[in-house]
């Protein structure tokens, strides 16, 4: 008796998207990163194209981080003293991209000016050759001031700008179009809103194929199964032919995993002084590998050991170099 072929055939395909521009394409990056391209569910190479390997971006802040847990402080050492040093260190840890967060532009934080933000971006661009993700401070009014400066300072570098939301997307759309950057569309764990933001951005004239979906991330133990099912639903829709959900997905793993109590200060009986620093690494790696199964093309991470573990896991799931 022959076994029936139960492999699924999908009508849709996840968009392929390239971040960063080398001198040949008008930028200054030493390499570009291409993600997406899957025509089936993650890692099911027997069913179809699994696309490019998920890329790992590493977080860099525009100033020394406050309250980061000891394992991270230990890993980065004095690299926190400047974004440039930090970025170089991150590349040393194997970062495919740098995820620069302009957190100190926050009006209640450093309230840094648009020019200062642009300078930080230039500093990081000058220090490393990998592509950049640049995230604003999360306050719409302020982001609408700083992102134009950031965008034009990095014109042609093919950044991934974060993030366009339902209530604030026009500025980033205009910048992405004017300066040739890609766009991250954020939604609050809701597949409907994820689609709505994509529609709004395309209505405003932004090409769908230049977008990345950021569906909001939750860490292991903090609603990850909900996040997983939202991501999975989006992916199933995208593969099922819904072009508006066929974009690569970003997961903000490092920030979420390292916020958890288990990563910062594990309270389990088995924890010893020796194993304490490993919890955060394990938590971050587990969150990342878990979400990869739902379909993630771009992971944002923090700890070098977690990065190494996830890289190895991806290697096992996608053994042959694509």
């Amino acid at each position: 008796m022959t076994m029936p072929d139960v492999s699924e055939k999908w009508t849709g395909k996840i968009n392929t998207l390239t971040l960063g521009a080398t001198s040949a394409s008008g930028g200054t990056r030493t390499g570009a990163v291409t993600i997406g391209g899957a025509s089936t569910l993650p890692f099911l190479s027997f069913e179809g194209e699994v696309g490019n390997r998920p890329a790992i971006a590493v977080d860099v802040l525009d100033g020394p981080p406050e309250g980061w847990p000891a394992p991270l402080v230990k890993a980065y050492g004095d690299a926190f003293s400047s974004p440039a040093k930090w970025a170089k260190k991150a590349v040393g840890f194997g970062a495919d991209l740098i995820c620069l967060r302009l957190a100190n532009a926050h009006p209640d934080g450093g309230n840094r000016s648009p020019q200062q933000c642009a300078d930080t971006v230039k500093e990081v661009l000058g220090a490393v050759g990998v592509p950049l993700i640049v995230w604003g401070c999360g306050i719409d009014a302020k982001d609408n001031q700083i992102m134009p400066a950031v965008s034009s300072a990095a014109r042609g570098e093919n950044l991934l700008l974060g993030s366009a939301r339902e209530k604030n997307y026009r500025t980033l759309v205009a910048l992405g179009l004017a300066d040739g950057h890609k766009l991250m569309a954020e939604s609050p764990c809701d597949v409907n809103i994820a689609k709505q933001v994509n529609i709004l951005c395309t209505d405003a004239g932004y090409p769908l194929e230049n977008m990345v979906i950021f569906p909001t991330t939750g860490a292991l133990g903090y609603g990850i199964e909900y996040v997983y099912s939202i991501q999975e639903r989006g992916r199933l829709a995208g593969l099922g032919g819904d072009r508006l959900l066929a974009q690569p997905v970003l997961a903000d793993v490092g920030a979420e995993a390292w916020r958890s109590k288990e990563a910062r200060d594990p309270q389990f009986a088995c924890v010893t002084d020796q194993t304490r620093p490993l919890w955060g690494v394990a938590w971050e790696a587990a969150t990342a590998t878990f979400l990869l199964q739902a379909g993630v093309e771009l992971l944002v991470m923090r700890h070098p050991d977690a990065i190494a573990q996830v890289r190895a896991a991806i290697g096992r799931l996608m053994p042959a170099a694509k």
Partner: peptide, 16 residues
Amino acid sequence: MEQFTSACFFPHTNVE
């Protein structure tokens, strides 16, 4: 609730 969020968009999130 799911259908409601989906329908709270002009004309609908599922534009198709």
